[in-house]
């Protein structure tokens, strides 16, 4: 028991490395917020573009979306960070992490939005078009408000999963929580910094997970 306390909850180590963990927290939050904003926005735009049903454009969207849903985020980041510089594209670790997870979130979000759009009854389109509303007006005023509501629960869950993956940014040298904790662990030869990282993640994400449970019951599929 003593051993666990010493190695996982050493107060001296905690006090010493708290500032750097907190630095890491801000980087993680910064990165996560950027990813959520750009990922959801891009996913939404792609789904709307897909609604126009222009064949070659849709094939392209489906291809890109499939690739970023199929590849593990860590593989994407490593390819972006370690392979792209060989063909002259160099990005900082932060940009790589942001871009990779934005593309991943956008891909999942596009698929979710698109499924939402498809699940709106055909009669809604017909009723709106019969009153003279154009395609875009129907999409904006009739279909999307219903589709977005349907997509809120799966989108919330997916967003949490992907923002959690910001921990992978430690692989491309972003100074986020896990990087800070690993460095501190190496310096102090003690696991306590990792415990601190774990607690930091819990503080950030536990409320979101609880929120997602509430969202699920509030916006669930039944109308």
């Amino acid at each position: 028991m003593n051993r666990i306390a010493e190695n996982f909850f050493d107060l001296a180590v905690m006090a010493k490395y708290l500032p750097s963990i907190i630095d890491g927290v801000w980087v993680t939050i910064h990165l996560a917020v950027l990813i959520v904003l750009s990922g959801l926005a891009l996913g939404f735009v792609l789904a709307v573009v897909r609604a126009f049903q222009i064949r070659p454009v849709n094939w392209l969207i489906v291809l890109v979306v499939d690739v970023f849903r199929a590849l593990p985020p860590i593989v994407i980041m490593i390819v972006f960070y370690f392979a792209l510089p060989f063909v002259g594209i160099s990005m900082s670790g932060f940009v790589v992490a942001w871009l990779s997870l934005t593309l991943v979130l956008a891909s999942f979000a596009e698929e979710i939005f698109w499924t939402g759009i498809l699940s709106v009854d055909r009669g809604q389109w017909e009723a709106a078009r019969s009153t003279g509303l154009g395609f875009l007006q129907t999409l904006r005023d009739v279909v999307l408000p219903q589709a977005v509501r349907l997509t809120i629960p799966p989108l919330t869950n997916r967003t949490i999963v992907i923002t959690k993956s910001t921990a992978i940014a430690s692989v491309v040298a972003v100074q986020e929580i896990l990087t800070q904790a690993s460095a501190a662990q190496a310096f102090s030869a003690n696991t306590t910094p990792l415990t601190m990282a774990a607690i930091a993640y819990l503080i950030i994400f536990f409320p979101l997970v609880v929120l997602s449970r509430w969202v699920e019951s509030r916006f669930g599929w039944k109308r």
Binding site: I74, S165, A167, L178, L194, Y201, V209
Partner: peptide, 16 residues
């Protein structure tokens, strides 16, 4: 565990 990045868990278990 839904609030916990799997990578963090992995590292914690592995090094812990």
């Amino acid at each position: 565990f839904r609030s916990f990045p799997p990578l963090v868990l992995l590292i914690l278990v592995f090094y812990g």
